[in-house]
Nucleic acid binder design. Structure first.
Length: 424
RNA sequence: GGAGGCGUAGCCUAAUUGGCUAAGGCGUCGGCCUUGAAAGCCGAUGGGGCGCAAGCCCCGUGUGGGUUCGAGUCCCACCGCCUCCGCCA
């Protein structure tokens, strides 16, 4: 949620921000128009309420003095004022509802360091680690490798659940479990995160606070009967953990890590990444979330990103870090780094983590504040990043660690977790 | 699913049968005092509208409605927590 007071002061700043993202800017004028009406109505209501308060005081006084005629007259007058107030309050509610719907659909303002451009071609590569894996044989894609080993079952998954699901067996299933444990251990023991096991089903409000709703309802699985949503990422519960609370500045930054499955309908991605387990309706992810102060959130974004990168470094998987352009960034983000891992099957780098600073955008929606050293209340800044997408990490290991005989070597750091060094 | 209870500010706790400023304590911040600190004392400590400002006004007792001249208080719905019963991995 953007700051309406800031919008009043400098509408052009927000129009410019929308333009950079490739959004229509008319919405800003609509918001301002409703805001003007709202302020007019609010002023009138305030005046009438002041009058009503005055009248009720006089009623009480007249009653004490047992002046029945005066009491009756005042009550009549109060009734009239009350009617007018109610009319205006209905109008005000209507305006507020309209305004809320508009504001919830306005994306966050990009940070000044974000490259301006309409799509991903304007993204900027920040750094690269390692070199694309070279093979002295023809490497296989994971969607061939896995089934040939008998450990990745796409057909039966289709039977059970339809397309974009997979089943893992024995050593491959265990490798995935090892990855989860490795990531959680790294972030909790070395990077200082608090581990969280959150709910996987959340209320509509929760999805709204973190920015998934109302704009992206098509993307989410919903349980009709109870109107609960399957989380598309652990970011949703983690970033709403302190909704409505006032945190102490001394307790910041708060750093949380959670492993959860993620559920996405992938409604807008027909024909994209259809093979294997790159884009599934259900995938495992380890998510990192920070709560911090406005002055420190960009420094925090660098640190959080480095924590995600560390996973790839230890797994010795080649990757690069991309700074997303204004046109490629998500709705809630002010600035986003994508980490992309090398995938031989794509002969390209493929997103495996997305690390964003949302500044106060989510905190405003969820009303998450902290008390500053000077005693004042302010919104926290929230950041989120994958550390990492487990399914895609599994794919990256399968493809980059494959051997000529079709077996897969287990990365050294994972052997203590798997108990074996090669698959099968 | 059934029965009952509860929800007050950052936290804890008050508020006759609906009425005058939601009282008090703790914490936090600022000031006084002090060589420094503690203690003590004074003040501040939710949101909004109008205004250059001083300031004026409104709202705020889980959320949203309703009754009433007037609601923390009465009514309805929802959310959350607790207790008991039922069901259950």
């Amino acid at each position: 949620m953007i700051d309406i007071k800031a919008l009043r002061k400098d509408p052009d700043f927000f129009k410019d921000a929308l333009k950079k993202r490739g959004y229509e800017v008319e919405i800003i004028d609509e918001v301002l128009k409703i805001d003007k009406e709202w302020r007019d109505v609010t002023t009138k209501i305030n005046e009438l309420r002041a009058k009503r308060n005055e009248i009720s005081k006089e009623v009480a006084k007249a009653k004490r003095e047992k002046d029945e005629d005066k009491t009756k007259a005042l009550m009549e007058e109060g009734k009239e004022v009350g009617k007018k107030i109610k009319e205006l309050e209905d109008k005000k509610r209507e305006l507020e509802e309209k305004q809320k719907q508009l504001l919830l659909r306005i994306p966050n303002v990009p940070h000044e360091s974000v490259p301006v451009g309409e799509d991903e071609t304007y993204n900027v590569e920040i750094r690269k680690w390692g070199q694309p894996t070279e093979f002295d044989f023809e490497p296989k894609a994971h969607w061939d490798l896995g089934p040939e080993l008998g450990l990745l079952d796409i057909e039966r998954a289709g039977k059970l659940s339809g397309s974009r699901f997979v089943i893992l067996y024995s050593k491959l299933a265990k490798l995935e479990r090892a990855l989860i444990n490795f990531m959680l251990d790294l972030h909790t023991k070395e990077h200082g995160y608090i581990e969280v096991a959150p709910p996987h089903l959340v209320k509509r409000e929760t999805m709204t606070w973190s920015g998934q709703l109302p704009k992206f309802e098509e993307e989410a699985y919903n349980t009709k009967k109870d109107d609960l949503f399957l989380i598309p990422t652990a970011e949703v519960p983690l970033v709403n953990l302190h909704a409505g609370e006032v945190l102490r500045e001394d307790d910041l930054p708060l750093k949380y890590v959670a492993y959860t499955p993620c559920y996405r309908r992938e409604a807008g991605s027909y024909g994209k990444d259809v093979r294997g387990m790159i884009r599934n309706h259900q995938f495992d992810k380890v998510e990192l979330v920070w709560y911090t102060t406005p002055g420190k959130s960009y420094e925090a974004l660098e640190t959080l990103t480095s924590h995600a990168e560390e996973v790839l470094k230890r797994l010795k998987l080649p990757y690069r870090v991309i700074l997303l352009s204004t046109g490629d960034m998500g709705f809630t983000a002010s600035k986003t780094y994508d980490i992309e891992v090398w995938l031989p099957s794509y002969n390209a780098y493929k997103e495996i983590s997305s690390c964003s600073n949302t500044e106060s955008f989510q905190a405003r929606r969820s009303n998450t504040r902290y008390r500053r050293k000077d005693g004042k209340l302010d919104f926290v800044h929230t950041l989120n990043g994958s550390g990492l997408a487990v399914g895609r990490t599994l794919v990256a290991i399968m493809e980059n660690y494959q051997q000529p005989d079709g077996s897969i070597k287990v990365p050294d750091v994972l052997v203590p977790y798997t108990g074996f060094e090669v698959i099968p």
